[in-house]
Design a protein around this nucleic acid. Structure first.
Lengths: 221, 221
DNA sequence: CGAAATATGGGTGTCGGCACGGATGGACAG
DNA sequence: CTGTCCATCCGTGCCGACACCCATATTTCG
């Protein structure tokens, strides 16, 4: 089906698990039109590789040390606009999915998919076609498409400095009163900020707030 | 070095990520003395496979649906005493390490190791030699050896399977009622387990429980 | 077998999280 | 200058988390 490329697509592969890299490389390299030319064990290394090498596609794991796949994707989209990005992750999770798209990824593939699907996802990304991973919740896709169609910007309103300050403290487990004392404001104000955060981020409670803060690197587990 | 086996070792491979299974299979099958004869996508399936097939070694991922690798390992050690078990995991974590050993595993290998190390770990497990994964924190090994030498019980009172189940769900943000409905037990029992967890782990609330679960790799942010 | 651990269930009470209202002052842009 | 956004603050009410007490059935193990 695929026309034999005069030059196979050059791929950068980033995953902190050597075994996974090895496996994925074996799978991709066995395709005539794909070749893995570089590997990285974390996000920072991936960005460095992409700076110095001529690559067409970056396959990024989300959870990596130093810089996450999402952070790396944002960076790569910034410094190498033409580069295709495919997120490869174990998280069948709506939040990650949207964040990946916003970070500039053109595809989102679960590690639980078959190797054929990975290959197809790579080819789709190289053609700049969006690839919805098999097994994607239909609601996931529908929600995204709906939002995109209605013109609603995804990151509606970014969180303010003050809110980020509150977010950090809430995620660290402090109560409204503790935070109020710390920042010398009323605990009710803290609750108001917290409520705004929940609304802006589309989260339910401070527990999800905590996981969010950890995910984006605001605090340590 | 290794004597060419008249019959290659028969391996059961269990990991919920198809891609990982595929990669590991490629690595192991390329060795003449190793052959993957079965795959499983979760712990229960792994146990079922081991019942009906003649295998020498089970390579188990720790985090799998339905039954974790640890639970599967206990089950396998019970029903197939001669079987060798190698835990393959992304968690460089003391708690899991000890639990794996207690569950009957003869080896513990991180997904971040190179493919050669995986092969060597399989061979070591087949010879029934303990294999400490490369890159293991020396403190981890030392702590274990110290405790074993001094006859002291390993972790004072390890959390039980049920508690770990509760821990996961609590850390994922489910309420007592939700968890109760899910496990078909009273919400009060869930609260009891949660209270025991807080006490055993020396934590204050479910938020710290969440961070703990993330830290030890039980759940994802 | 008896002791200990585990899993199960309940009651009562306090406290904080969170949703839902509302308001005010100040900063900055159109 | 007027409107929007931000930060600040307040009241009410519900519900879940958590601490403390209690009990019992089953399993495990010395």
């Amino acid at each position: 089906m695929t026309r034999p490329a005069a030059r196979p697509a050059r791929i950068l592969l980033a995953d902190d698990h050597t075994l996974v890299r090895r496996g994925v490389r074996l799978i991709l390299d066995s395709e005539p039109d794909l070749t893995v030319v570089a590997e990285a064990a974390d996000g920072a290394e991936a960005v460095a590789q992409a700076r110095s090498l001529d690559i067409d596609l970056a396959v990024l794991d989300i959870s990596m040390p130093r810089r996450t796949g999402l952070q790396a994707a944002r960076e790569l989209a910034r410094i190498r606009p033409g580069l295709r990005i495919l997120m490869l992750t174990m998280y069948d999770n709506e939040q990650y999915f949207f964040e990946a798209l916003r970070a500039g990824a053109s595809g989102y593939v679960l590690k639980s998919v078959a190797d054929r699907d990975l290959v197809e996802a790579c080819r789709a990304a190289l053609r700049d076609e969006p690839f919805i991973y098999p097994g994607a919740e239909t609601t996931l896709v529908r929600t995204y498409l709906d939002r995109a169609r209605s013109g609603g910007p995804l990151p509606d309103r970014p969180i303010t400095e003050r809110e980020e300050e509150i977010l950090k403290l809430v995620a660290e487990g402090h109560s409204s009163k503790e935070i109020g004392d710390l920042l010398v404001i009323s605990p009710k104000t803290v609750e108001r900020h917290r409520a705004n955060l929940l609304q802006k981020l589309g989260l339910r409670d401070r527990l999800e707030l905590t996981r969010y803060a950890i995910r984006v690197g605001l605090i340590e587990p």
